[in-house]
Computed example of a mutant assay.
Amino acid sequence: MALAAASQVIAHSEGHGSIEPAVALENAINAADHLTRVSVDRDWSPLAKSWSQLSTSSAKILAVVDGDYVVAVTNPDDGRILYILVAFNGAIVDANFTGTFPYVYDAQNPDTWTTD
């Protein structure tokens, strides 16, 4: 996937366990920042510069699904929400503005709103 480049600059968990929630938030913020500087296979890419250097207070974990984190990153300048799927090991799996990650989570469907 084109977003794999974003995960290469993100720190991963130590060992073989799942990352802590704080790491998932930080990785999502770092991914948003990275996506302002690179173009990926998305019509919204690259992100506007206002997405760079956001604080972790702009990010919120919406769900934990099988150890993976669904993180919502809100841009305070325009109010848009970038949804980022962070894998259990810290890698960035996907990002979009819909909150829908097939077979994992759908921000529009409360039936998928589960936590571990």
Rank of each mutant, 00 (worst) to 15 (best):
V73R: 02
T74K: 11
P46G: 10
A32Q: 02
L3H: 13
V70N: 11
G67T: 05
Q8F: 11
L3R: 11
N109E: 10
R42A: 08
D111N: 07
A6P: 03
V9W: 13
A24M: 00
A91M: 15
F88V: 08
S57Y: 04
D41Q: 12
I19W: 03
V71M: 04
G79R: 13
Y69L: 00
A22W: 01
T36I: 07
G67V: 05
A22L: 08
T100H: 12
D68W: 01
L54V: 01
I81K: 08
V64W: 04
F97M: 12
Y69P: 04
T115E: 08
E26S: 07
V40G: 04
A11N: 13
D41H: 11
I19F: 03
V86G: 10
A5S: 08
F101C: 09
L85I: 00
L35H: 12
A72F: 02
I61G: 02
D111L: 03
R37Q: 15
K60C: 10
R37G: 09
V23G: 11
I10R: 15
A31R: 00
A48C: 08
D106V: 09
L35T: 11
D111F: 09
L35C: 06
A63N: 09
P46Q: 14
G90K: 03
H34N: 06
V93N: 14
